[in-house]
C-alpha cells in the first residue's frame, strides 16, 4: 500500500502558504503532476504531494505541504510548519490585498516555523498581465528588504513553476551541504572559517528509512 518512490539522498519539507485563492494548490499540482485544474476545490486543512529532483547528482525528495488560506485555519495549519526547511509564500499578482497580507504570513512563519527556514516570495498568476495589481519591481524590492528570494509564476501556463521549486530546493540543498561540510570539518578539528555557519537541517537524511510496521 505504501509509496515506493523512496530512493533519495535528502528529504526536504516545504510549505505553501498565502491567502485563499492565490493558486497554492495549482502550483503544487503543476510541479508534482504537471497538472493545472480549473475546477480545483478549496483546500480544507492540509494536503501534501511529493516530487524528486536532481541537484549535483543528488536526489532531493521534496515533500510539499499545501495549506488552507482562510485565516481561521491558521491555528491548525501552523502546526505543519514544524520541520519545514522551506516556505513558498504565495500571493496573486492580480489581487493587491493578497500581497498586502504577505507581512502577516511572514509573521506566522516567524512565530511558528524554524528561524532558519528558507522563504521564497512567489507572485502567482503572472499570465493575468492585463489585471496586474502588484508591480514586479515593488515585490522584488520588498523581497530584498526582507531577505527573501523572489519569483513570479503562472501555474496555468507553467511559467517559472519548475524554476521556483528548483531554486528553493537548491538553496536549501546548498545550506544543508555546507552544514555537513562544516560538521565534517569540525569532526576533523579544522577551522571552518570559510564556511557560512548555518543551523538548518534536512527534514530527513539519506537513510531511506522504512518504518515498516505492517503487522498483517
Amino acid at each position: 500500500m505504501s509509496s515506493k518512490d523512496d530512493e533519495y539522498d535528502y528529504l526536504f519539507k516545504v510549505v505553501l502558504i498565502g491567502d485563499s485563492g492565490v493558486g497554492k494548490s495549482n502550483l503544487l499540482s503543476r510541479f508534482t503532476r504537471n497538472e493545472f485544474n480549473l475546477e480545483s476545490k478549496s483546500t480544507i486543512g492540509v494536503e501534501f504531494a511529493t516530487r524528486s529532483i536532481q541537484v549535483d547528482n543528488k536526489t532531493i525528495k521534496a515533500q510539499i505541504w499545501d495549506t488552507a488560506g482562510q485565516e481561521r485555519y491558521r491555528a491548525i495549519t501552523s502546526a505543519y510548519y514544524r520541520g519545514a526547511v522551506g516556505a513558498l509564500l504565495v500571493y496573486d499578482i492580480a489581487k493587491h490585498l493578497t500581497y498586502e497580507n504577505v507581512e502577516r504570513w511572514l509573521k506566522e512563519l516567524r512565530d511558528h516555523a524554524d528561524q532558519n527556514i528558507v522563504i521564497m516570495l512567489v507572485g502567482n498568476k503572472s499570465d493575468l498581465r492585463h489585471l496586474r495589481a502588484v508591480p514586479t519591481d515593488e515585490a522584488r524590492a520588498f523581497a530584498e528588504r526582507n531577505n527573501l528570494s523572489f519569483i513570479e509564476t503562472s501555474a496555468l501556463d507553467s511559467t517559472n513553476v519548475e524554476a521556483a521549486f528548483q531554486q528553493i530546493l537548491t538553496e536549501i540543498y546548498r545550506i544543508v551541504s555546507q552544514k555537513q561540510i562544516r560538521n565534517d570539518n569540525a569532526d576533523d578539528q579544522s577551522s571552518p572559517d570559510n564556511i557560512t555557519p548555518v543551523t538548518i537541517l534536512p527534514t530527513d537524511n539519506a537513510e531511506r528509512k522504512k518504518n515498516n510496521c505492517c503487522q498483517v
Partner: peptide
Amino acid sequence: KSDILCIDCDMASMHKFLT
C-alpha cells in the same frame, strides 16, 4: 484497519493514505 496497519508508520504517509 487492515490497510492502515500496512501503511508506513509516519505522519506524512498516514496523512496521505487517510485523506
